[in-house]
Design a binder for these strands. Sequence first.
DNA 1: TTGCGGTCAATTGTTGACAATCTACACATT
DNA 2: AATGTGTAGATTGTCAACAATTGACCGCAA
Lengths: 230, 230
Amino acid sequence: MPGFEDTLRLLRSSSLPNALQDEIERRILFGEYRAGERINENALAQELGISRGPIREACRGLVESRLLAVIVNRGFFVREITAKEAADVYDVRASLMRLAGETLAGRITDGQIAILGSLVERMDAAERGGDHDAYYVLNVEFHDRIVDYTENDRLRAMCEGLAKELALYRHRSLIDGGGVHVSNREHRRILAALAARDPARAGAELERHMLAGKERFLSTRDNTGDGPPA
Amino acid sequence: MPGFEDTLRLLRSSSLPNALQDEIERRILFGEYRAGERINENALAQELGISRGPIREACRGLVESRLLAVIVNRGFFVREITAKEAADVYDVRASLMRLAGETLAGRITDGQIAILGSLVERMDAAERGGDHDAYYVLNVEFHDRIVDYTENDRLRAMCEGLAKELALYRHRSLIDGGGVHVSNREHRRILAALAARDPARAGAELERHMLAGKERFLSTRDNTGDGPPA
DNA sequence: TTGCGGTCAATTGTTGACAATCTACACATT
DNA sequence: AATGTGTAGATTGTCAACAATTGACCGCAA
């Protein structure tokens, strides 16, 4: 993996732990580190040609953002998320998206409406063309923009964190695509409520949309309520 | 400060960084470290008789939980929260409490209703007796229990984190008491909605209650939108 | 007085080494 | 065969030292 070697050199000016935290996070999110796997500090240090100090710092950060768990004298482990925990995260995220909708409906600009509208159009096109990958990317951007436009930084950060946590759950069972495809009709309803500057409706539509996503997602997996090994 | 020396010895079995993170967090929450202040790693290490490694690990964790900020080559600083950021946090918290109300109304037990009822009664008594401190403690417990009873761990963790973040803002201006005294009537309305097992009403009452708290709180301060020095 | 360089102490960034702990495996015992 | 025990290797926890950077102080020139 030469990708990190570059960022390492580039970001050596901006502290190893920060760059490392991003890199380890990336490996977790991309499934290169599997759920439950231990982060071997020595191995990672040797691989990257650095010492263990910065690695431990980065891991501490990832523990706080709930991507890693730490067991004393045993090390850092990629967190394992149970179906129950994933469901809880979905509920919280739905609630936050509701807030996003309520907030944004009261302050959205015409330009932002146009951009969101264009995204919905392109999702329609992708849907018609059967281009699932394009649809997925557009879908993510649609939701991200809604959160961004609220200009509530705390909300932004939380949604980002929750999304990462869910990615963690996704890697538990391997399949990712399939069934995740959301009807674009819900997006149209959300956009209409935002364009009407109706906070209650925009919030309700977004919350409903996210909860529908939760049901779609959880129903495609084995909801075995397995807990951590100890 | 002999208090920490004990915990240090006690928790030496369970890793310095964890104990340190709690201790530094305590110092921030209690205002012993002031907003904007730098954490001097050497000084702290010497004071506690340990080395800088664990301190840096603890600080990384606190950065992720938003109590500290890090500037490369300059160190860790206690975060400064602007009025805008505090308002954002309040909005998010209100939204989450709404979720707590909706969730709890669908699963609250008679025993839990009784406990919450007792808390409201005792708040009434404290209100009549003018015992602001007792009222404050009961008030916190009332809200904590509502969140706890939902059994949504993610929600629990987030509310806890947001509360700490707000404590950070509280220390910006010194006064804390006064004006914070909430009418107990709102609590009664919340309890009634929960006891009626009405999710929509319980959620709405809680959200309204938190937003009212936001207004009460922000109106008592100078809303100077000062940002970090750079 | 004001602004500009340069030196130096203080502080953070990173490393390598050592101590403490855990896991696995082989061996002895019942 | 099953169980306990002890040793060895691997791994984490902590430390002390060194390198790099920063900010402040001080003198000097315009």
